[in-house]
């Protein structure tokens, strides 16, 4: 492995860490399996591609985040107000987003950004580290935000909501609002990751988001298998670590000659292995 490959893995690891931090909000904090992410990641890609093509790369991040937030709100309303199962609600939003993403990209399945300036362009002088530095900065920023937010009164209520909804309602907190808020933030970060991903790849594709949920799950589960601590700070670190670790496994697999089409299968197998291993050790301990 040479430096370019290692840097590439770290960069992608960082981008998917942002996505996984979003998924951590829904999957771990709220205890909601949210499949919206497959659509909201692509939504971030699409919004980012359009804005970057019109030379607003930084603005694209803000709009991608907002778009993702809206997607999360839709899923949140479907589950809380219309009482649709969270899994199905996510699938419905994701399915609807396919058409919206296509429309955002001007009814084309992919958009190339070759020749456009991106969020990375102003830092070209630090080449080849500029991308990693900027991505690392975003990861740090989001970790700090979540670290703060999850320890506020509101964050506490959100965490309790994933732990025991009855108790939260008994504390006169509107659990519907909490879920919608959590899903909004989660999908906002997922879309932001998509936006950065698109500018990193200089390319947006309608199928970019396929398997996002599985990648995020893999990162969270792998990270939390290595770092078994309950403190928020450790957990956030674990998610970032997991995302990067996971990316390295994929990179190594590619280097060993695995055709890239098999990456999704590898992702799925990894998640199965990680979950199975924790479940089996738990069962052993019980006996």
């Amino acid at each position: 492995m040479n430096l370019t490959i290692i840097l590439g893995a770290l960069e992608l690891g960082g981008i998917f860490a942002i996505m996984s931090l979003g998924l951590y909000m829904s999957y771990k904090i709220l205890n909601l399996p949210d499949l919206t992410v497959d659509g909201s990641f692509t939504l971030g890609c699409a919004v980012s591609a359009v804005f970057t093509a019109h030379s607003f790369p930084y603005m694209s991040l803000i709009f991608a985040f907002i778009a993702g937030t809206l997607a999360g709100i839709v899923t949140g309303i479907l589950t809380t107000k219309f009482k649709i199962m969270p899994l199905l609600a996510g699938i419905l939003t994701m399915t609807g987003l396919y058409s919206i993403n296509l429309a955002v990209m001007g009814d084309k399945p992919n958009v190339s950004l070759l020749g456009c300036s991106t969020i990375f362009t102003p830092f070209d002088s630090f080449d080849p580290y500029h991308k990693l530095l900027l991505i690392g900065f975003f990861v740090l920023l989001i970790c700090l935000f979540l670290y703060y937010f999850l320890r506020t009164q509101l964050g506490l209520a959100l965490r309790a909501c994933g732990d025991n909804e009855d108790m939260v309602r008994a504390s006169s907190i509107d659990t519907d609002k909490m879920k919608i808020l959590g899903l909004a933030i989660a999908n906002g970060f997922v879309a932001l990751a998509g936006a950065i991903y698109t500018q990193h790849q200089m390319f947006s594709d309608i199928s970019n988001g396929t398997g996002t949920m599985v990648i995020g799950l893999a990162s969270i589960i792998v990270g939390l298998t290595f770092i078994k601590k309950d403190k928020i700070s450790y957990q956030l670190f674990a998610v970032v670590f997991g995302a990067i670790f996971y990316r390295f496994i994929l990179t190594i697999a590619l280097q060993l000659g695995l055709p890239s089409g098999y990456l999704k299968l590898l992702s799925a197998v990894l998640v199965v292995l990680a979950i199975a291993s924790t479940n089996i050790t738990r069962r052993k301990r019980k006996c």
Partner: peptide, 8 residues
């Protein structure tokens, strides 16, 4: 178990 949040 209903009245408290166990992992907090």
């Amino acid at each position: 178990l209903k009245g408290t949040a166990p992992s907090m």
